[in-house]
Simulated scan of single mutants.
Amino acid sequence: MLVVLTAWRVLAYPQRVLEDLHVPARAFGFFTGVAGTNVVAVCLIALGETVPVA
Score class of each variant (00 low, 15 high):
A27W: 00
N38T: 15
L44V: 01
M1T: 14
T37M: 15
R26K: 11
W8S: 07
V3I: 15
D20H: 07
C43D: 09
C43T: 14
T37P: 00
V42K: 10
T37C: 11
A7Y: 07
L21Y: 01
R16G: 04
L11F: 05
L5W: 10
A35F: 09
T6I: 15
R9T: 07
E49K: 12
V23H: 10
T6V: 15
L47F: 11
F30G: 01
V40S: 03
C43Q: 08
L44G: 02
M1E: 12
D20K: 03
L18F: 10
V34K: 02
V42E: 11
T37H: 12
A7K: 10
A35R: 09
E19L: 09
G33R: 00
V4C: 09
D20L: 06
F30A: 06
H22L: 15
A41D: 10
R26P: 01
A41V: 08
R9H: 08
L47D: 04
G33M: 03
F30H: 07
P24M: 00
Y13I: 04
G33C: 03
F31D: 04
R26Y: 04
R26G: 02
I45P: 00
V39L: 13
P14Y: 01
A35H: 06
Q15T: 11
F28E: 12
A25K: 04
N38G: 15
G36I: 08
V42I: 14
W8L: 13
A25P: 00
T32D: 06
T37F: 15
T37Y: 13
T6L: 15
V34H: 01
T6H: 10
G36S: 10
L44A: 11
F31T: 09
A12R: 10
W8A: 11
T6E: 13
V42Y: 05
V3P: 00
R16C: 03
V34T: 09
T32M: 05
D20Q: 14
A35L: 14
L47K: 09
Y13G: 02
D20M: 13
A25C: 02
N38M: 14
L18Y: 07
